[in-house]
Design a protein around this nucleic acid. Structure first.
Lengths: 342, 342
DNA sequence: ATGAAAGCGCTAACAC
DNA sequence: GTGTTAGCGCTTTCAT
């Protein structure tokens, strides 16, 4: 009974069962308006009865339609990318498109391999968080006819569309918040790696100082941690405290994990009480609100980021490249407030 | 110049450029051994020169090969599912398969829609965390020829393969740990919803008591929170403390978020110091180790779960259904230790 | 080792 | 409104 790869039932059997031709069955599926209502009913009954499932592969080959989109992020486990992915998924679902995902781990070779797989699969487009600086391969891909949206990187003037968040503004918001509370000596915890995001956030922090008429170099002390996680930040701030013998008044950490590391460094030294040291993080991870001392943070519209990227891909014809920049948002919680505990 | 849907270059052009026939080009790609080395080189050069990208859709239609797998989880944003997804991705990558993902939000209708889309796309299999109790649709899908692996649910005796983690054992491990430290009054914080996972964990907790010759009903006090998150747990434990005027000695929370809620409830009442109340969570989320008081938790082999599911799908012929049950693991951190702070 | 040709399952033209 | 038929781009017999 098994002839094809799957459940066997093809459009021909449906046609025979309904007493119509293949073309009519196809029309019922794809252009219902062209078909007489009674005929359509008969066809649908036959489809039901036989358990017919359309072969999307054949349909795609013939009609040249695309129903999938690919996405490549650095690591799907990173909540930022997970949220973005969900945003893509959700938008695609509105069009019955389906999402293929892959994690590049920042490895250009892996990225290239997945791009190739996606291209061969005939995806209707890809959204990519580039693994490297060089987007040449992506430009070429787009040139061969696969729409590309670059994520989390802004590419003004590029032929590729991009969707990103304004990191300079994020840094500015964080500092603005601290400055507004009167802090004038602020420690900034960052990582050693030259990541564009942290560079931008730092730049925003400096801008905020300047717009308050303050000299950034006097206000900000940049502490470089070995790693961009809580352990790195804990060590960096711990060292600072141990060496200087003083406790920072205010800290801006480049991400929430580092902010948690800061909290921990101070607590371990019995220096941490709400109201004593203001801490601001970045990313607004889900747990920021759940901590013993809920964390003030910068929230990025991650879901919207993904949704917008998907929207651009599904836009009728790929018109000109579009550069979308979202704005981040300050979320104030207990960790940055100078008031006594609740 | 554009004739097909994409970059135009087809196998025919490559063949002409290399001075061979279509079939030979195909053989170079799919059965290199059948082809003379020189010819192969010529063909590869032509492929390179023309920038030929194989049309996987056509290839799949003709050869009946599958190169994608679908997965449906409740919500990709849940770290448990994200890790599982990465496990699937990683295993698939070893075979140049590609993963399509979808989130059902526990909605059977959404689930069904994605299953349909995947089936039409001709996926080589699906791994599904079922949205409802009923797996009938999945059995039917498998019956039509699409291999199915059910995740996070064990289905002994079913015709479907499944991969899951032993939740009874997880509950047992947690209680065993607390009992071993001499706690004999333990509060268990759970949710109101009748979730299989929590039922099993609770059962494991009772088993641990019994194996210590203790009456579970005397050892365990089950506190039902309104929600399975930190706010729910905070309220439940807060109420307990406020009403009884005493502080629990040991708490087992059904997930890490709830455990954090417990920590917060006690801290808000200035009752929480390490060594005073032992807290054990479940899931071992990334942040468990990062908290002010690092959390003891039960870790599930999430990545392996996904990888194994993918492995089953890619196994040569879909032999008999296979039921894989992984064991969880206790991760001890500061929150459950009776000793004074480090 | 290579070429010629049929056909995977479907859709879109075109006839009627 | 419905039937007929060519063909999407590839892989695979079957010859040679």
């Amino acid at each position: 009974m098994v002839s094809g790869q799957r459940g066997t039932v093809g459009i021909g059997e449906v046609a025979r069962a309904a007493g119509v031709s293949n073309g009519t069955v196809s029309n019922v599926l794809n252009h219902p308006s062209r078909v007489n209502a009674d005929t359509a009913t008969r066809v649908h009954e036959a489809i039901q009865r036989l358990g017919y499932v359309r072969n999307g592969i054949a349909s795609q080959l013939r009609a040249g339609t695309r129903t999938t989109v690919g996405s490549i992020v650095l690591d799907i486990r990173n909540p930022f990318f997970t949220d973005v992915t969900r945003g893509i998924e959700d938008h695609l679902a509105t069009a019955d498109f389906t999402l293929m995902t892959a994690s590049s781990d920042g490895d250009v070779v892996r990225e290239q391999r997945f791009l190739r797989l996606f291209e061969e699969q005939g995806v209707g487009g890809v959204v990519v968080v580039p693994a490297g600086e060089d987007v040449q391969r992506l430009v070429e891909l787009a040139g061969r006819g696969t729409p590309v949206v670059v994520l989390d990187v802004s590419l003004p003037g590029s032929s590729l569309s991009s969707v990103s968040v304004d990191d300079v503004e994020g840094g500015r918001l964080a500092l603005e918040h601290l400055l507004a509370q009167g802090y004038e000596r602020i420690d900034v915890v960052t990582g050693a790696a030259e990541v564009r995001q942290t560079r931008d956030r730092l730049r925003g922090a400096r801008l905020a100082c300047e717009s308050h008429g303050l000299d950034p170099d006097r206000v900000l002390s940049v502490r470089t941690a070995r790693t961009l996680d809580s352990a790195g930040a804990e060590e960096a701030i711990g060292r600072l405290v141990d060496e200087s013998g003083t406790c920072p008044h205010a800290v801006f950490a480049m991400n929430d994990l580092m902010a948690i590391g800061v909290q921990r460094a101070l607590r371990r030294r019995e220096l941490y009480e709400p109201g004593r040291t203001a801490v601001v993080g970045y990313d607004d991870i889900d747990l920021a609100a759940e901590l013993l001392v809920p964390l003030t943070s910068i929230r990025q519209p991650t879901h919207a980021l993904g949704a917008r990227a998907a929207e651009i891909l599904l836009a009728p014809a790929s018109q000109e490249a579009e550069q979308v920049v979202f704005q981040p948002e300050l979320v104030v919680r207990e960790s940055s407030l100078g008031t006594a505990r609740r």
